[in-house]
Amino acid sequence: MDAIELLLTRQSSPRLVAPAPNAEQLNTILSAAIRVPDHAGLNPWEFIVASGDGLAKLGQLFVNASAAEGSDESTQAKMANMPQRAPMVITVVAKVVEHAKVPALEQHLAVGCACMAMQQAAFALGLGGIWRTGGLAFNRVLHQDLGLRDNDQIIGFLYLGTPAVTAPIKPTKLATDVVRYL
């Protein structure tokens, strides 16, 4: 698949099954992430990969975070199972570096680009993925349990695996609907 076709036909894959990316594929996916624009070469990211037993560990961290907010048992059970929706979950974290010329917002955007680059690389490799965020991305207990610093921010959870179903191609949108010229 060429790059333009990939960009124009990209789809999220919400139903993912094994196999997860293998070691070589994961290396390619992570390598794509760190090639995104990164003003001043700050590398303001961290990628926490969970697969196999790591998915249950991540699920328990989700439960702990939810419980700290006073959730009920039903919600906690849902939280425990969330990482099981794919054979691999990458927690994508912005690790902002103090810099006179590169504000935190720009670093967060770079990490967002890294997340998209990973998803695109997964698609190019014949895999599927979906970028999820939600309240857990902002839960300070989860941040603490993951060993994140106060100014770190989870940008999202990238679920990766093999698509269980082929998603229909979404209708083409017209860029002209959202563009204006000066």
Results as ranks from 00 to 15, higher is better:
residue 172 T to G: 07
residue 106 E to I: 03
residue 30 L to F: 03
residue 123 F to C: 01
residue 25 Q to M: 09
residue 177 D to V: 11
residue 173 K to V: 05
residue 68 A to M: 07
residue 120 Q to K: 08
residue 86 A to T: 05
residue 124 A to N: 09
residue 85 R to K: 07
residue 93 V to I: 11
residue 161 G to R: 03
residue 143 H to S: 13
residue 144 Q to L: 05
residue 35 R to E: 07
residue 81 N to A: 15
residue 86 A to K: 00
residue 153 Q to D: 10
residue 155 I to S: 02
residue 125 L to K: 07
residue 55 L to E: 10
residue 31 S to G: 15
residue 25 Q to V: 13
residue 179 V to S: 14
residue 85 R to C: 08
residue 13 S to I: 02
residue 119 Q to H: 05
residue 127 L to A: 12
residue 24 E to A: 15
residue 156 G to Q: 08
residue 156 G to L: 10
residue 40 A to D: 11
residue 121 A to F: 12
residue 132 R to D: 08
residue 134 G to Q: 12
residue 4 I to S: 12
residue 85 R to D: 06
residue 54 G to V: 10
residue 85 R to Y: 08
residue 126 G to H: 03
residue 52 G to A: 08
residue 84 Q to E: 12
residue 73 E to Q: 15
residue 120 Q to G: 00
residue 37 P to E: 01
residue 69 E to T: 03
residue 59 G to N: 03
residue 135 G to T: 12
residue 104 A to R: 11
residue 115 C to W: 15
residue 105 L to C: 05
residue 137 A to W: 00
residue 135 G to N: 13
residue 51 S to N: 06
residue 118 M to D: 02
residue 46 E to V: 01
residue 64 N to A: 15
residue 103 P to L: 00
residue 180 R to V: 06
residue 8 L to G: 03
residue 60 Q to P: 10
residue 147 G to Y: 01
residue 76 Q to C: 15
residue 156 G to A: 04
residue 179 V to E: 12
residue 61 L to H: 14
residue 36 V to F: 06
residue 156 G to P: 04
residue 54 G to M: 09
residue 78 K to C: 12
residue 177 D to M: 12
residue 38 D to K: 06
residue 72 D to R: 04
residue 102 V to M: 08
residue 42 L to Y: 06
residue 115 C to T: 14
residue 127 L to V: 12
residue 82 M to R: 13
residue 176 T to L: 14
residue 104 A to W: 01
residue 14 P to M: 03
residue 13 S to C: 10
residue 135 G to M: 08
residue 146 L to S: 14
residue 121 A to D: 05
residue 74 S to P: 14
residue 50 A to Y: 06
residue 182 L to V: 14
residue 90 I to Q: 04
residue 128 G to C: 08
residue 98 E to Q: 14
residue 157 F to Q: 05
residue 103 P to F: 00
residue 65 A to C: 11
residue 23 A to I: 00
residue 133 T to Y: 07
residue 39 H to Q: 02
residue 141 V to E: 14
residue 71 S to Y: 06
residue 160 L to R: 02
residue 6 L to K: 13
residue 48 I to C: 14
residue 30 L to I: 06
residue 76 Q to F: 09
residue 52 G to H: 06
residue 107 Q to C: 11
residue 76 Q to R: 15
residue 133 T to G: 05
residue 39 H to G: 04
residue 96 V to M: 10
